[in-house]
Amino acid sequence: MSPVTASDRIQRLLSVVSWIASRGDPPVREVCERFGLSPSELQAELDLAQMVGADSPEFSDMPIEVDYEGDRVSVFLHNLSRPLRLTPQQALAIVAAGYGLRAVPGHDPSGPLARALDKLAVVLDIPAQDAVAIDLGAADEHALARLRSAQAAHAPVRLDYYSAARDRLGSRVVEPWRVFSDEGAWYVEGWCREARGERVFRVDRIRAVEVLDETFEPPERPPEPRRAMQVAGDDPRAVVAISPEARWVAESYPVDSVDEAGDGTIRVRLPVAGAAWLERLLLRLGPAGRLVEVDPRIGPPDLAERAARRILARYGQNPASGTAQGRR
């Protein structure tokens, strides 16, 4: 956690005293737990509170009185009797967290979190239900719940998984270490027994989850939070020439290198997770991208052209006959 700033310190002090004042004489221990303070930190905080106005020439300037009675504490407030209004940063942090958790598939729309957010919306002047909207990505709530409980119970799961990179369905046994949402999609990270390595799976590509009746030894240290998109160092590589309007590719994907060609075009060398992944990238780039070089393990140099013809076949088109004209 980052250090306590000036504004945080003032907000904490006023929050603590106003909470104590609203409770009568709560036990010191309860105040400490509630605000994450050690007894000596609380003491320092309350000492500071009592000093407010003490050196002022006007007697009425002392707003905070503190009394200890055994292991209990009480506060009387003549002014500064409430926590301060939240700053936009503070308000957004709690609202985004709340709306974010509310967006978890399977969340109870009438549960305590939803009620809390409705009450907050009133005091924070949030103009409408959808004034802050958060999408974490769709995922089947039952699959998500199964994965989470398997993670908690250290039970391996058998996943029917659609590999988008290879455009193939497969089954594999995974020891789930972590379930998370990043970049608007849900993932499960863990040890894949088939691959004998750490892997990340998108939950919306899991077609079925079966929790196995056994347990696994979780890693001693929980894995570092990692981003959804990861590069395997030994993935095969491709080089793609990219026009200026599609330079975002270099920022959106992990790349090995970016070479300027001088005319605004760049050559990007990047790891490729599978043939279908590269096909998608090239098809979306269209005229803005051209495959310059590709590891033969992935596919032939005209992989994009072949993919385009495969799709066109669905539309009753057959550009291989030479009748097709590029529109550009």
């Binding site: 978890v104 969340h107 305590p112 979190l113 974490l136 039952h142 199964r146 989470r148 972590r178 998370f180």
Partner: peptide
């Protein structure tokens, strides 16, 4: 094997 995903089911992290 299913935990009901109510408000306070372990959310994983986001």
């Amino acid at each position: 094997d299913v935990v009901a995903p109510g408000d306070v089911a372990p959310p994983g992290d986001v």
